[in-house]
Amino acid sequence: MRAAPLHSLPQRADFLRAASHGRKAARPGFVVQILQTTPGAPLRLGLTASRKVGNAVIRNRARRRLRALAREELRARALSGADIVLIARKGTAETDFATLRADLRAVLDAAFPAPTAPAGAP
């Protein structure tokens, strides 16, 4: 049984909104832009790779790796109310997948901290 697909950012304006109003984090393998939207809204994902990344084969490989990474990490967290844009960098297609995963986890942990229990709670 397949998991439900991630919602995507359908228009260029959505990407530009995330770029201009969202928080950014750069890692060696990718750049992440996160824009908080209305609570309860579905999490939407956008992927992009410019020609600086490489030829069409390399760009497609980089996007496929980022999509697989996002499926793995974002579904495990069950996040909502945000637009997330992953931008491939020159080394995305060759970077070790475990390194990409650790970088994305660190960015998501900073952007979406786990709720903490109030002081004195069991």
Rank of each mutant, 00 (worst) to 15 (best):
G29I: 00
F30P: 01
R51I: 01
T38Q: 15
R12A: 02
Q11P: 05
V53I: 03
V57L: 12
H21K: 09
A62V: 01
P39D: 12
K52N: 07
P10D: 13
Q33T: 02
R17K: 14
T38A: 15
Q11M: 02
L43A: 10
I34K: 10
G40I: 06
F30M: 01
R65E: 03
A13G: 07
R23Q: 11
I58Q: 15
A18D: 11
I58C: 11
G22H: 08
V57S: 14
R64C: 11
T38G: 15
R17Q: 13
A13S: 12
T38K: 15
V57Y: 09
R61Y: 02
L45K: 05
K24A: 08
T38P: 15
S20A: 10
I58L: 13
K24D: 01
A19D: 15
L16S: 10
A18Y: 09
N55I: 00
A26R: 06
H21A: 08
L16E: 15
R23E: 11
A18F: 06
N60P: 11
V53K: 01
R12C: 00
R27G: 00
Q33V: 00
A25Y: 05
V32Q: 04
Q11I: 00
G46N: 04
F15Q: 10
P28E: 07
V53N: 02
Q33M: 10
A49H: 07
N60S: 12
G40N: 14
R23I: 00
P39T: 07
K52V: 00
G40S: 13
R59A: 03
R64E: 14
P42Q: 08
L45I: 10
S20L: 03
P10K: 14
R59D: 04
R27V: 00
L47I: 02
G22I: 04
G29Y: 06
L16M: 12
R64L: 06
R59S: 04
A49M: 06
A49G: 09
K24L: 05
Q36F: 14
F15K: 05
R63L: 01
A56L: 05
G54R: 04
R51D: 11
P42H: 12
G46Y: 01
N55S: 06
S50Y: 01
A26M: 04
G22R: 08
V53C: 04
A26L: 02
H21L: 05
G22W: 06
R17C: 06
T48G: 14
A49T: 03
L47P: 13
R17G: 03
R51F: 02
G40Q: 13
N60I: 00
D14G: 14
N60Q: 12
R59M: 07
A62N: 08
I34D: 10
A25D: 07
R12S: 05
A25K: 07
A56F: 03
A13C: 06
V32W: 02
R44K: 15
R44E: 05
A13E: 15
D14A: 10
P42M: 05
P39N: 11
R59P: 09
L43V: 04
K52T: 00
Q33N: 13
A13R: 15
R61K: 15
R51G: 14
G40A: 12
V32K: 03
G54I: 03
A19K: 13
S20Y: 04
